[in-house]
Amino acid sequence: MSLKGPIIAIEDDADDQFLLKSVIEELAIPNKLLFFGNGLEALLYLETTLEQPFVIICDINMPVMNGLELRSRIEQNDFLRKKSIPFVFFSTADNPQIIDKAYSSTIQGFFKKESNFDELKRRFRIIYDYWSCCLHPNNF
């Protein structure tokens, strides 16, 4: 994690991408925001970039490679595992079995994506503030 690194957002819905972009702008978060439409696109980027992302914000249900599959592939990759990029699910999926499965893959958080813009903004502020203050092996 790098405090100045990009926020990686894996989200296939254009409306949700717009909302997340709007939230980050309104909160005046300085990190660059990079969108990927599915887990495979994000994985290819993460495997080849030298950038140290700030955090990965990932939806669960996506085409090609879903969020759970992406998390599994990151954990299996020595290069990416050593980067220790915080990985947070941000999804409308709030099924207890999905949440349990997500946490069994060593994620750092699971947040419900709210339809209310102010609540969405509040949740993202919490995620951003937490990782901005958190000590992390790649901060040094």
Rank of each mutant, 00 (worst) to 15 (best):
M1I: 08
M1F: 06
G5S: 07
G5M: 03
P6C: 13
P6Y: 03
I10V: 15
E11C: 13
E11A: 07
E11D: 05
E11R: 06
D12E: 07
D13L: 03
D16Q: 08
L20Y: 08
K21H: 08
K21Q: 14
K21P: 00
S22H: 09
V23C: 12
V23Y: 04
I24P: 01
I24V: 14
I24F: 12
I24R: 03
E25R: 14
E25F: 09
E25T: 10
E26Q: 15
E26D: 15
L27N: 04
L27H: 05
A28V: 07
P30L: 06
P30D: 02
K32H: 06
K32Y: 02
K32T: 12
K32A: 13
K32Q: 15
L33V: 12
L33H: 04
L34T: 00
L34F: 10
F35W: 04
F35C: 06
G39H: 08
L40Q: 14
A42D: 08
L43I: 11
L44R: 14
L44C: 07
L46E: 08
E47I: 08
T48W: 01
T48E: 14
L50I: 09
E51D: 15
Q52L: 12
Q52P: 02
F54P: 01
F54R: 08
V55Q: 02
N61G: 06
M62T: 02
P63C: 03
P63Y: 04
P63F: 07
V64P: 09
V64N: 09
N66E: 12
N66H: 10
N66A: 13
L70N: 04
R71Q: 15
S72F: 02
E75I: 10
E75W: 09
N77P: 07
F79K: 11
F79S: 05
L80P: 02
R81H: 10
K82P: 00
K82W: 03
K83E: 03
F87K: 06
F89E: 00
F90C: 01
S91A: 03
S91Y: 07
T92H: 09
A93H: 05
D94G: 10
D94C: 07
Q97H: 08
Q97A: 14
I98H: 10
D100V: 02
A102V: 04
S104R: 12
S104P: 00
S105T: 12
T106P: 00
I107C: 13
Q108K: 12
G109I: 02
G109L: 02
F110K: 00
F111P: 01
K112P: 03
K113Q: 00
E114F: 05
E114G: 00
S115Q: 12
D118W: 03
D118F: 09
E119H: 05
K121R: 15
R125F: 13
I127T: 04
D129I: 00
W131C: 09
W131A: 05
S132V: 03
C133N: 14
C133R: 14
C133M: 13
L135K: 15
L135C: 04
H136D: 06
P137F: 11
F140R: 08
